[in-house]
Amino acid sequence: MFVSRSMTRKLITITAEEGLFAARDAMRGNGIRHLPVVDAEGKLLGMITDRDIRSALPTEWIRQPLSESKMEQLEALRVKDIMSTELFTITPNYTIQDALLLIEEKKVGALPVVDEQGYLKGILSVRDLLRAFINVLGIGQPGTLLCILVEEKVGQLKRIVDAITEENISFGSILVAHYWEEEKRAVFPYLLTMNVSRIKKKLEGMGFELLDPMKWYLDQLPKNE
């Protein structure tokens, strides 16, 4: 779960001396919203985002052609004039969890990945994180989600995992979440099989309560109001 495995390595970058329109075209042409700004050696100097560009353009731009003098003014704008230089960077050996927490805390859409000398190695965007979590959840593969309610005590998960393993069923993922009742946990094994009726009966026979997924999906997690 290291950033080096999930980051985008094929980088689209721009230099500080290029114009604002060049930056906009590079983003449009590549379907991206974040451009790392680098020097001739590939050291990271800043970041420019599509929002930085939109903020730099006057609002009347959308409705009517701009006067020549205004255009000249805009064309004179360099990347270095509008890029952010207060950067939140990570290194390739950050974990995905580090990146997830940092992106959430700093409210950014992407994090540049640099080595210890400050050379740009990659970029990790929210989309890269999403892909990593689709992988972690196992939902890119065919499978079935079970929802099991267990008492919070040592060894419960082992019993579930053992029972499923004995049925020769592979796990796509297994999540454990807080339940609204104290001292209970909800366990969500995502099983890489269509054939779940037997394991469901078996788990019920072992005394586990299988939940109706509609009564409990992830909606009971603490909400961000």
Binding site: G140, P142, T144, M194
Partner: peptide, 8 residues
């Protein structure tokens, strides 16, 4: 598909 096979 979030609950049932095959997830598509």
């Amino acid at each position: 598909p979030s609950f049932a096979f095959p997830g598509t």
